[in-house]
């Protein structure tokens, strides 16, 4: 008799812990051919709220770290991912199908993207900051600062490379994030959470919710303690994007609108996924004796 395998329970990732949904609900995740893979946690409004609270709690510590340190922490995520390649390859193939080679390629790109963003940690301020030559005896310096707690609707299709491409730029600059993972393809996100938990990322910096988006993202969009929202995962759904943008206006969240179609994740990312979630702070001081 063959050995019965031990199945993994796919849970949420909130504040560095892996709770089940407080609602007790889960949902069936099938693979690309429709076969049962797992029961994933179905995040509720309350889970979204808890995730925001965890992200807020983590924000001062994370944003207060040196940029060099944040860069190292993000780089460390890449290292740990590299260590868990087979698991990611499997998770990507379950959700997205394709060959082992295409999954490997996506994983390579995801790891490389983390490394790319890790390097930005202590350079972005130099590229987007400014010393301003004001007409008077004043020192004047503009520097970027993280916006705060950012809600991210992760891409629906690209469940690993897309996920990494929207999370890394947000956190590397010092924001904390609540991610609504791809509802259809949540497993790479959960595996990613396990990587985060075993790397050096402090609890609460990244929080990952799985399940139907309509249960969580309206809560995130209207939550008054969320500073910004990235609607990338709603590509091709302008109506929901509009509704969330309206909700986000209540506390003037910075909104990154949904594109008409999911972006090409292999393209050069540019800076805007970082700069969209940065504030510019300008400090004046007199120059005298």
């Amino acid at each position: 008799m063959s050995r019965l395998d031990v199945r993994k329970t796919y849970k949420l990732f909130i504040g560095g812990a892996f709770p089940r949904s407080e609602s007790g609900h889960s949902y069936v995740v099938d693979d690309v051919r429709g076969r049962f893979v797992a029961n994933a946690a179905l995040a509720s409004r309350k889970d979204a709220r808890d995730a925001v609270a965890a992200a807020r709690k983590a924000f001062p510590g994370w944003s207060g770290r040196t940029a060099y340190n944040r860069g190292q922490v993000v780089y460390r995520i890449a290292e740990v991912m590299e260590d868990r390649r087979p698991q990611f390859v499997q998770a990507v193939r379950q959700g997205e199908g394709g060959t082992a080679a295409t999954a490997e390629k996506e994983l390579d790109a995801a790891i490389d993207r983390l490394v790319w963003y890790a390097g930005w940690a202590d350079k972005i301020a130099q590229v987007v900051g400014n010393a301003n030559p004001v007409a008077g005896p004043f020192f004047n310096l503009s520097t970027p600062e993280p916006t705060g707690v950012v809600a991210v609707v992760a891409p629906a299709e690209s469940s690993l490379l897309g996920l990494v491409s929207v999370v890394a730029p947000v956190i590397v600059t010092g924001n904390t994030v609540v991610v609504a993972a791809s509802a259809q393809r949540p497993l790479p996100a959960v595996t990613f959470a396990e990587v985060l938990a075993t790397s050096d990322v402090p609890g609460g910096v990244v929080n990952i919710l799985t399940g139907a988006l309509d249960r969580t993202i309206p809560t995130l969009a209207s939550h008054m303690d969320v500073n910004a929202i990235d609607l990338t995962g709603l590509a091709g759904d302008p109506e929901q994007g509009r509704a969330l943008e309206v909700a986000a206006a209540e506390n003037l969240k910075r909104v990154r609108r949904a594109p008409s179609a999911e972006p090409d994740w292999d393209a050069d990312p540019g800076l805007d996924r970082m700069t969209d979630f940065l504030e510019t702070k300008t400090v004046w001081h007199p120059i005298g004796v």
């Binding site: 030559p133 004001v134 004047n140 503009s142 705060g148 504030e279 510019t280 702070k281 001081h285």
Partner: peptide, 24 residues
């Protein structure tokens, strides 16, 4: 958490100096 911080001065403006806010 503010877009402009004036230290030992206040309400100074200059075209070369970015101005704008955080949050609401």
């Amino acid at each position: 958490r503010a877009g402009v911080v004036w230290a030992n001065t206040f309400n100074k403006f200059d075209p070369s100096s970015p101005f704008g806010g955080y949050k609401e």
